[in-house]
Design a protein around this nucleic acid. Structure first.
Length: 338
DNA sequence: GCCACCGGTGGC
DNA sequence: GCCACCGGTGGC
């Protein structure tokens, strides 16, 4: 699945779909913080209503959104009304969860116009990455979409709205585009995981790299890339933030007496089983909708594996004693700076 | 045996 | 609380 350089995942992760609805729905929106988790659709709208005067404004203008059309409904309500060129529907077919565990991937990408605050679909992942790379310095406006939609303007209705049918997440702005020949993949984890997503870079050789350390090692092993001017700063493992509160399981407070049941009871309630949606913050977005995303895919997967967890915990404990003396190298981002 | 995926932790 | 990293397991 990871294979191809230019195929799948990557593309799979962006969907241009229309043609092939998928059931996973993952939007990702890039914004500066403010939109921070709690901000919601309403806030975004508010932003607009207030002519961008509200506090969310500046962020809103940097919004990027990746979303995945729901497959459940056959994509019928596909908001992608506008024509999308470069459509490669077949790519969607690549979405093949490798196992019972379902991996969500980004279906499409959208960016919010800094002028009218409407969301515009971006026709390809590459284009999205291109825009995202300089989003802060070069805010996106509907007019920019004329490159692939000649007639588009702020007067046109939004391509997509946060109607609750999708999971949205906020992407980070100004992430460098992957070097030519490289692919940056975003793997969305299921709900309830300890992390929202993972980023992988696929080198031209097909090698999958999952951290800056990996990148660094790889570049050292392949000096040719460095001569091409590829440096560490061309890579970023920053992941988007889901707008839906509670999508990611909160890190549990330290539990020393781990085996103590009472402890669990009082301190950390199992978020998977009973965490009620936080009504105040939760994004309207996530709540009513997200049927597919939330119920279908990830959740189940998570729930099914407690046994593994236990095993691992035990294994971990045993291992600690033998590895305690190991000294791990620590890398700092500064090191990557040129 | 490989590897995608997930969990967990150290550092900030 | 977030980020970065990486070990480990299960599925293939």
């Amino acid at each position: 699945m990871v294979g191809g350089e230019e195929n799948d995942l990557n593309d799979a992760s962006f969907s241009n779909n229309k043609g092939t609805p998928r059931r996973d729905v993952v939007p990702i929106s890039l914004s500066s913080s403010s939109l921070s988790s709690s901000s919601s659709e309403n806030e975004l709208r508010k932003t607009r209503n207030e002519n961008g005067q509200s506090q969310c404004n500046d962020n809103a203008s940097h919004e990027l959104v990746l979303y995945n059309p729901p497959a459940g409904d056959g994509g019928a309500n596909e908001p992608i009304s506008p024509p999308i060129e470069n459509r490669r529907p077949s790519l969607l077919g690549h979405f093949t969860p490798k196992s019972s565990r379902v991996m969500l991937s980004v279906g499409a990408f959208t960016i919010q116009c800094a002028g009218c605050f409407k969301w515009r679909l971006i026709p390809s992942k590459e284009k999205y990455e291109e825009i995202r790379e300089h989003l802060l310095e070069q805010p996106f406006y509907c007019e920019n979409a004329r490159e692939w939609r000649p007639d588009i303007s702020c007067d046109d209705p939004a391509d997509i709205t946060q109607d609750g049918s999708r999971l949205w997440a906020i992407d980070k702005p100004n992430i460098a585009r992957p070097p030519l020949g490289w692919q940056r993949q975003l793997h969305i984890r299921g709900e309830g995981s300890t992390k929202f997503a993972d980023v992988y870079y696929i080198a031209p050789s097909g090698k999958k790299l999952r951290s800056m350390v990996d990148i660094q090692k790889y570049l050292i092993e392949h000096p040719e890339y460095q001569t091409e001017g590829i440096s560490m700063r061309r890579f970023s493992f920053q992941i988007p933030k889901p707008l839906q509160e509670n999508y990611v399981r909160k890190r549990r407070a330290h539990i020393n007496a781990s085996c103590d049941g009472s402890k669990l009871e009082s301190g950390g309630v199992n978020p998977l089983s009973c965490a009620p949606p936080d009504s105040s913050t939760a994004l309207q977005l996530g709540r009513p909708g997200l049927p597919e995303l939330l119920s279908a895919a990830p959740i189940n997967n998570h729930v099914v594996r407690p046994a593994k967890k236990v095993k691992r915990a035990l294994a971990k404990k045993m291992e600690i004693s033998s590895l305690e003396l190991l000294e791990l190298p620590s890398l700092k981002l500064d090191q990557y700076e040129k």
